[in-house]
């Protein structure tokens, strides 16, 4: 346990820079988006009101007030989120492969630590979760800052204020990242954990068997998908709608847990018996 925590801490220090850079980009782009889009709205408003001499009230009625969602749906806001998601996806692979590549072969050191090798797996998995939660947490911190900047930029008659919760609830496309309930949180992030553990296992298969391992990794991933959807397939095609929705739901959760457990078992086996530096 102590070694696991030390490894988590060590791995986190290694990704801190990437984390900070992505957060910085996110913050700057989103604040930039608030400023640029507010300015754009105000420019249009000024043009219409002072040059075309349209009364303010008529402009607002025609154009509508600006609310934060217009920022949140723009590339300024979604772009960095997509970048962070891509960053996490990329890091799932990088977190393993960087230990093998380069002339400093850190994997030797990791595999020679006097601790169970599964701790390496857990520590890396934990770091992917930390990275993800870190982005989400900081995004939630950024939002009120951004809405405050928005308020500074926009005279109150032109804007329609929303708080953070209203903003998130109005954006179903973000509900996977910012779940609306605790159950959803567990489900979405549980599913994420499952995907990452399957990918880790596939990576370890590749690291153990090289070219053949890539195929084994793909096959392992396909098997995981098959296991996951097997209750649904049974339900639809074999048992003619046998399960209640809640039963199907619970079965899916069990399947997800089986996949996570299977991936951990497989990874432990590979790290102990098959891995090669």
């Amino acid at each position: 346990m102590k070694n696991y925590l030390k490894l988590v801490n060590f791995e986190f220090n290694r990704l801190a820079k990437l984390f900070a850079v992505l957060l910085g980009i996110t913050f700057l782009a989103q604040i930039g988006g608030v400023i640029v889009l507010s300015k754009k709205y105000l420019n249009v408003a000024n043009e219409r009101i002072y040059e075309d001499m349209i009364p303010k009230a008529q402009f607002i009625a025609e154009f509508g007030q600006m609310n934060f969602l217009q920022v949140a749906r723009s590339a300024f806001f979604m772009g960095p989120i997509a970048l962070c998601i891509a960053g996490v996806a990329f890091y799932i692979f990088l977190i393993w492969y960087r230990d093998w590549f380069g002339k400093n072969t850190f994997i030797y050191r990791l595999l020679m630590l006097p601790t169970t090798r599964l701790n390496i797996f857990y520590a890396k998995l934990t770091n992917i979760l930390l990275l993800t939660f870190g982005f989400v947490a900081f995004q939630i911190i950024f939002l009120p800052i951004e809405t405050t900047v928005f308020k500074w930029m926009m005279p109150s008659e032109f804007r329609n204020d929303m708080n953070v919760i209203e903003i998130l609830q109005s954006m179903p496309e973000l509900s996977i990242i910012f779940p609306n309930s605790f159950l959803e949180f567990i489900l979405y992030y549980g599913a994420g954990l499952m995907v990452v553990s399957v990918l880790f296992t596939a990576i370890l298969l590749e690291r153990s068997f090289k070219w053949k391992g890539i195929f084994a990794g793909i096959i392992y991933s396909l098997v995981a998908v098959a296991v996951l959807i097997s209750p649904v397939l049974l339900h639809e095609f074999v048992l003619n709608g046998f399960f209640y929705p809640i039963e199907l739901f619970l079965l899916e959760i069990v399947m997800g847990l089986i996949i996570i457990a299977g991936s951990i078992w497989m990874s432990a086996f590979l790290l102990k018996k098959k891995i090669t530096v």
Partner: peptide
């Protein structure tokens, strides 16, 4: 096994730490 690494160690031809 892992526990043995308190009794035996290996110095490879490349350094095993991060640059």
């Amino acid at each position: 096994n892992e526990q043995s690494f308190e009794k035996i160690t290996f110095i490879p031809d490349a350094i095993t730490m991060l640059p």
